[in-house]
Design a protein around this nucleic acid. Structure first.
Length: 553
RNA sequence: AGACCCAUGGUGUAAUUGGCAACACAACAGUUUUUGGUACUGUCAUUCAAGGUUCGAGUCCUUGUGGGUCUACCA
C-alpha cells in the first residue's frame, strides 16, 4: 500500500477515510455532469477543478456526463462548447463523453424494479393536485388517491406511458416514500413525466423522461462513480439519492456537497446570463466582460490562472464571496512571466526631439520579457518624432515625487534615450498639441555614459513607423459587486453603461504580427490579447486587466 | 414555522484534531528597479454572543444570535 496524499479539505478527508476503509478497492472516479443547455461559467470551472483535481490527486479519473434528461431545453451545440471549454481549461475526461440519455433504457428497467417492489406508483393527479398533496414546510402532505394501486396495475400503466398511450401531464410515476417526511423531497417525489418531445440524441424513441432525482444518481451508479461531488443546494437531494440506491440495491456512489463559489461582479445564473445575451446587453456568450469560460478566454485570462484561482479559493461548506482582485491577481501572476512586452500609446500626443537630426532614424532593441531572458529581444524603430501618453505629461513643473514628463524634467524613453523636456505647444482650449524636448546622445540604452539619473521611464511609439490599432478597454459589467443581492431590485439596474470603450491607439510595428491567444503586455499599461474580430487590415486588442500601480497622483 | 447546513481579520482559506491564531489577496509604510510592473521587507484578528467542562478552548457541551438551503411533471 502506497502512502495516501494528505487531505487538504473536508471532501478529501472523506475520500482518505473511504480509501483507508478499503472502499471500492481504492478506486476513485468522480464526474462533472453539466446540463447541455447553456455555456459554462466560472462557477462550473470551480466544480470542474474540484472534480478533476481531487480524482487526479488520489490516482483516479473523472467522467464527463451530459445530464440531458429534459428534451425541451437541451441542444447539441451546447455539448461541443462545453467540451471545448473543459479541454481549454486543461482537463481530460476518461473515455468518451457520456450522456444520461445513454441510460434511458436502464433507467426504465430500474423504474420497473421499483414498481415491482411496491416502491413506486403511477399517479393520475394533475401537477396542481400533486403540489397540493405535498403540503409545505410546516404542514404534512397527504397521500395521493392513486397511491395504493397494485404493483401489476402500476407496471401496466407505466409500460403504456412509455408506449405513448397518454397525453403529456396526464400521468407521472412517483416514488412511494412518506408524505409526512420533514424533507419535502421524500414526499413521494415524481420520478418520470410524459413529454412527447424530440430529444437531441434519442429523437422520438422516448416520450417519458426521468427527472433529475431518478436520472443523476442512477447514472452515477451505472458509471460506478465513487464520489459524486456537487454543490450545497443538493444536500436535501442526498436523502433521496441514498433512498433510491438502497431501494434498488445499486452501486453506492457517495454524494458530498460543497459550497459554490461566488465572485464579485460576475453572475453565474444561466437564466440571467442568457438574458444579457438575448437582450444584446453584451456581445454574446463569449463577451469578455462575462464570467463565462469562453468570455474569460476571449478576455485573455490564461487557463492556468483560472485553475489556480479555483484551487486557491478552497473547498468548504460556507457561503463565500471571492474578491475580483484575487481573480485578477492570479491572472497577472501567470501573465507576468508569459506575456511578451510591447509598446502602445493609448492616448497619444506628439513629442518632438528638437536636437535629433531631421530625417534620421535608428533601430533599438528591447527585451521581450524581463522575467524570461529566453524570450529574446526585438527591434523597435526610433526617430525625431514619437507618440507619448498624454497622461504622462504635466504642463507645470512638478515636485520631485513626480517622475514623468513636465517642463525641465529628465525622463528615460524605454530602451532609448533620456530626454529633457523643454515645454509644449497648445491650442486655444489649452489642450497640449505637441511636447518639445532635447535628448542626450550619450544616454542610449545599454551604452549610457551620460551619468544623468532619470527616475522615470516612459513608453513611446515612433510617429513614422507606428501603426494604428483598435483597443477595447473593459470595465466591470456591473456597478455593484453583487447585483443580485438587492432585495426588490433587478440586477439590470446595476449594469455599468460604460463597461466597454473602443479607442484607436498607436502601437509599435511588431503588433501587426501578433497571433490569436497570444498574451501580451502593453508596457506600463496592462495585459492585452488579440480579439477574434481582428483582421490584417484592422488589428483589435482586448484589455485583459491593468497593471497594478502604487502611483497616487 | 419545520428539517438540514454554516459561523476565524476588509476578502478567502489554515491551525499537528484541546496546547502561544498561519498563509494568500486587499490596504498601508518602505527597499530594489530602464515598466510608479515584477521581486523583497514591515504593519494590520484574542476566532458571532453568553454560560459551562478543563491546568489550558477557534477546536468539546449548553443556550442564544446571525446567515444559507428546501414547498418545479428544471437540473
Amino acid at each position: 500500500m502506497s502512502t495516501l496524499p494528505e487531505a487538504d479539505n473536508f471532501i478529501e478527508e472523506f475520500i482518505v477515510e473511504d480509501l483507508k476503509n478499503g472502499k471500492h478497492d481504492g478506486r476513485i472516479l468522480t464526474r462533472f455532469p453539466p446540463e447541455p443547455n447553456g455555456y459554462l461559467h466560472i462557477g462550473h470551472a470551480k466544480a470542474i477543478t474540484i472534480n478533476f483535481e481531487i480524482a487526479k490527486k488520489f490516482g483516479g479519473s473523472s467522467n464527463l456526463r451530459m445530464d440531458d434528461t429534459n428534451p425541451s431545453t437541451e441542444e447539441t451545440h451546447f455539448v461541443s462548447s462545453i467540451e471545448d471549454d473543459i479541454k481549454w481549461l486543461g482537463y481530460e475526461w476518461a473515455g468518451e463523453t457520456l450522456y444520461t440519455s445513454n441510460y434511458f433504457g436502464e433507467l426504465y428497467e430500474l423504474a420497473l424494479q421499483l414498481i415491482d417492489k411496491g416502491l413506486a406508483f403511477v399517479d393520475d393527479s394533475t401537477a396542481a393536485e400533486i403540489a397540493e398533496q405535498k403540503g409545505d414546510i410546516d404542514r404534512p402532505g397527504i397521500n395521493s388517491p392513486f397511491r395504493d394501486r397494485p404493483a401489476t396495475e402500476n407496471r401496466d400503466l407505466f409500460e403504456r406511458m412509455k408506449g405513448g398511450e397518454f397525453a403529456d401531464g396526464s400521468k407521472v410515476l412517483r416514488a412511494k416514500i412518506d408524505m409526512t417526511h420533514p424533507n419535502l423531497l421524500l414526499r413521494d417525489p415524481v420520478l418520470y413525466r410524459i413529454k412527447h418531445e424530440t430529444h437531441h440524441r434519442t429523437g422520438d424513441e422516448w416520450c417519458i423522461y426521468p427527472l433529475y432525482d431518478f436520472a443523476h444518481g442512477q447514472s452515477d451508479s451505472i458509471e460506478h462513480i465513487t464520489h459524486s461531488l456537487c454543490s450545497l443546494e443538493f444536500r436535501h437531494h442526498r436523502d433521496l439519492y441514498n433512498w433510491i440506491i438502497e431501494a434498488l440495491g445499486i452501486f453506492p456512489s457517495r454524494q458530498i456537497e460543497f459550497a459554490r463559489m461566488n465572485v464579485d461582479y460576475l453572475i453565474t445564473s444561466k437564466r440571467r446570463l442568457k438574458l444579457l445575451v438575448d437582450q444584446g446587453l453584451v456581445a454574446g456568450w463569449d463577451d469578455p466582460r462575462l464570467g463565462t469560460i469562453a468570455g474569460m478566454r476571449r478576455r485573455g485570462y490564461p487557463a492556468a490562472a483560472i485553475r489556480n484561482f479555483c484551487l486557491r479559493t478552497g473547498v468548504t461548506k460556507r457561503d463565500n464571496q471571492q474578491e475580483f482582485d484575487f481573480l485578477e491577481h492570479n491572472v497577472r501572476e501567470v501573465l507576468n512571466v508569459s506575456a511578451d512586452r510591447y509598446m502602445a500609446v493609448l492616448d497619444p500626443v506628439k513629442l518632438v526631439i528638437t536636437n535629433y537630426p531631421e530625417g534620421q532614424s535608428e533601430s533599438l532593441s528591447s527585451d521581450n520579457n524581463p522575467e524570461d531572458a529566453s524570450r529574446g529581444q526585438r527591434e523597435i524603430p526610433f526617430g525625431r518624432e514619437i507618440w507619448v501618453e498624454r497622461e504622462d505629461y504635466r504642463k507645470e513643473p512638478q515636485n520631485r515625487k513626480y517622475y514623468r514628463l513636465a517642463p525641465e524634467k529628465d525622463v528615460r524613453l524605454k530602451s532609448a534615450y533620456i530626454i529633457h523636456v523643454d515645454g509644449h505647444e497648445e491650442d486655444a482650449d489649452g489642450t497640449v498639441t505637441q511636447i518639445n524636448a532635447t535628448y542626450y546622445p550619450d544616454s542610449k540604452s545599454g551604452e549610457d555614459t551620460s551619468e544623468i539619473k532619470a527616475k522615470g521611464t516612459i513608453h513611446w511609439v515612433s510617429v513614422g513607423q507606428g501603426i494604428d490599432v483598435a483597443v477595447r478597454e473593459y470595465d466591470k459589467l456591473f456597478t455593484d459587486p453583487t447585483p443580485m443581492d438587492h432585495e426588490g431590485r433587478d440586477f439590470l439596474e446595476f449594469i455599468n453603461p460604460n463597461s466597454v470603450t473602443t479607442i484607436t491607439a498607436k502601437g509599435e510595428p511588431g503588433l501587426a504580427d501578433v497571433v490569436a491567444d497570444e498574451a501580451l503586455q502593453f508596457l506600463r499599461k496592462g495585459y492585452y490579447t488579440l480579439d477574434k474580430d481582428s483582421t490584417k487590415e484592422k488589428v483589435i486588442f482586448n484589455s485583459t486587466c491593468g497593471l497594478k500601480s502604487s502611483w497616487k497622483g
